[in-house]
Design a protein around this nucleic acid. Structure first.
Lengths: 170, 170
DNA sequence: GAGTTTACGTCAGGGTTGTTGACTTTCCAA
DNA sequence: TTGGAAAGTCAACAACCCTGACGTAAACTC
């Protein structure tokens, strides 16, 4: 707060935010906040036969329409058997559409159907509402800091995926 | 959808960080960052027969020594049957000690054994290392913002638990 | 054109985590 | 003292994810 980041000096109050106690608190904050983060969509999904895995699939298919199964696998960080089970139910229920690739027929391109988009909207509305409230209360600078830390915390590979999605959406 | 809900407000650019697109990005950041956040302890736990649930139990028992099962339940947000299974293995493996309450014999007070503390240290070292690196790179102001947003994002009940733990540790 | 690689799907088997339901022990209050 | 509530435990089951292996079709390579 007082001064920027006096990294050069190893000692002193500058690095108070790096004490073990501070880090422990941050770990707990991350844990509790993530609980809140997923709570709203979870409540909606529980009424259907769906779980968090379905939400994640729907989110990223919406975010990167036409994405292939393989690409989605990388984003979600699960095995294809795991994803396949989720995808199968979503396709069977008419929320997701799978198209054989034109240039490469081995690939399946995934899109949300109208019903899929509706559910996606419902879920993400709930999640964004909480986010928006938190962001509004915390203010722009806190939000900027929030995102900086989150991005720094990711694995490099995830950071790349994240950046690419960001460009898409922007 | 780069349109913005925030834009509808009179203040314009001030609320740019509240656009749907910004919020979507934050949701993804949260998702990817949490993956990184749990990755290191997960790698360690996979070698033992343990999972993330064990880690969480160990973390909070270490953080609030002598806590009761019921209290832990509230922190973890799972059913007591679920926690019990985890606790049973931890006790059987000699990582956690369960003492019948003195004033109320229905209660069990939980402590880490020496072996439990060792494992806790190993796990939290790994997790803190990543946190520390992220915090160092992001700088104190970003860290402050990070924590502000996380705290605002929690359910009120979790916020109370979080605050109480914070006082304990400080 | 034969052999290899890639993308996708599926079956079998197992693990952790979570749930509900039923139970014991202990406490407390009518 | 008796009935209800609370704390904890045990058992059965479902969801989700994982590994490993196999199969098919299409693309690529030599």
């Amino acid at each position: 707060m007082a001064d920027g980041r006096g990294v050069s000096s190893q000692t002193g109050e500058n690095l108070l935010f790096l004490t073990d106690e501070q880090l422990r608190q941050a770990i707990e904050a991350m844990f509790f906040a993530y609980r809140g983060f997923t709570a709203d969509p979870d409540r909606i999904l529980v009424d259907m036969a769906y779980g968090r895995a379905h939400h994640r699939a729907i989110h990223f298919i919406n975010r990167a329409p036409g994405t292939t199964v393989n690409n989605l696998l990388g984003l979600l960080g699960v095995t294809k058997q795991s994803l396949n089970r989720v995808l199968r139910t979503l396709i069977a229920d008419g929320l997701v559409q799978s198209q054989v690739g034109k240039s490469d027929k081995r690939e399946r391109h995934l899109h949300l159907t109208e019903a899929g988009r509706t559910l996606e909207q419902t879920l993400s509305d709930a999640q964004r509402m909480r986010m928006r409230a938190a962001f509004r209360d915390a203010g722009p600078e806190a939000v900027a800091g929030f995102r900086t830390v989150l991005e720094t915390m990711m694995d490099p590979e995830m950071r790349h995926s994240y950046a690419r999605l960001k460009e898409n959406g922007a």
